[in-house]
Design a protein around this nucleic acid. Structure first.
Lengths: 225, 225
DNA sequence: AAGGGAGTGTGATATAGGTCACAGTTTATT
DNA sequence: AATAAACTGTGACCTATATCACACTCCCTT
């Protein structure tokens, strides 16, 4: 799949700092792969040899916990997927799977390292993104452990609507089980809260198509549990 | 407090990659401050203007959650304290407080940035540490939400003994309330589990002095809750 | 089109750990 | 040394959510 990163319209904030020549180097050592819904992109426990970058689609990062898997976060396009694992450990500490059909670029890790060493603006941007995602994960963890199920589900709905799909109406392509794994609840609890939200007219659901009717109510739920 | 980073015997893994000249630059823009037990080192919500580095002592990172504060992690010496916040956001997203008397170096952020851009080995090491801590926090979060209180307390005891004090006997200088905030449990639950551990002869306690008597039992508890 | 698997809805029941209340103990502060 | 403040121990009770069980619906696949 020979392509040219220079012309890529999905460049990361970091890649925008690369020179034409650097982009050419990256192009020569980079491969784009399409994944279908539910395909595994990175598998926990395997050797990590590439940097992965999400060009389009939607993916989830998940970890095998002692009792069940936990969805750590949902990642949307223009983000790197395996950075912490690529640099922090040779073995992937988590899995990444496609929620929707997705395009992922695999960049040779040696080349990526080379670029980091050569271009300070690039490495600075990567650093910033790592820091942001660490902060985000701290915050997520606090919420996950302190809020009740209703509040956490409200958060998920708001997150999908505001940060991922940028619309009050969207196709929710993950299962209730996944939502449960994302907010630390069982499938059954998610189902019950869901039913309640529909009954109370907070959201509307037609199959997978979700529409948020009363965003204020969700905000309150997010705050008060 | 004029000192010279070159002669510092507490240098970080990253700082070891700096040249004499770079260390001199850092020395000129760096200040060491001593903090007493319980002193606040970084305060959530304030503007972050320096990189903080823990030379000696022991500190906790904590975040104000919606219902109570949560201790995110305990940090031991030779680690940077505010990196994610320094680069990811101008405002500190969490607080850092001393658990024991601690020495912290504050390094001018502009100088630190300069060093990152100038010395690839240095910036690579910082990157690696950030990645590691992100991985660690993912893992911590999974444990926190999936294990029962007994298992989580066993983890804390093992962590103190093996990673922090490197001894089966140590002074535990944090309160049960803090332990609770670290493992997401109430003070009362911690107290009950503690009493049980002493009764079962798994640990011994004489005031703040804790000794681990049956490490195997703790390991089992960590696994099975 | 029929069969099977994955996903969902909903009740009955169990339980870990939270909350409240108050006493006892240790550690600071004057 | 005395007084206050912070920390700890333990009981009684409560509740959110997990578990279990089973029926139902909606795809996929052949």
């Amino acid at each position: 799949m020979n392509h040219n990163c220079s012309f890529c319209e999905h460049k990361s904030a970091a890649a925008l700092k690369l020179s034409e020549q650097e982009l050419a180097t990256q192009s020569a050592n980079c491969l784009t792969v399409r994944f279908k819904k539910n395909d595994n992109i990175i598998r926990q426990g395997t050797y990590s040899t590439n940097v992965a970058y999400l060009k389009s689609g939607l993916v989830k990062i998940h970890i095998e916990g002692p009792y069940h898997t936990q969805v750590v976060r949902i990642v949307k396009p223009r983000n790197y997927l395996g950075l912490p694992t690529t640099f922090g450990d040779k073995i992937n500490q988590y899995s990444v799977s496609a929620i929707e059909e997705s395009e992922v670029c695999f960049i040779d890790i040696a080349v990526f390292r080379e670029l980091l060493g050569r271009n300070p603006a690039f490495s600075n941007q990567i650093l910033v993104e790592l820091c942001r995602s660490e902060l985000e994960s701290y915050q997520k963890c606090v919420n996950r452990t302190q809020k009740q199920v209703r509040g956490k589900i409200a958060d998920v709905l708001l997150d999908f609507s505001e940060n991922i799909y940028h619309s009050d109406s969207f196709q929710l392509l993950i299962t209730q089980e996944d939502i449960g794994n994302l907010v630390d609840a069982t499938r059954e609890s998610v189902s019950r809260v869901w039913a309640e939200l529909i009954k109370d007219g907070v959201i509307g659901a037609d199959g997978k198509q979700i529409s948020i009717i009363n965003k204020e109510a969700l905000r309150n739920m997010s705050r008060l549990g």
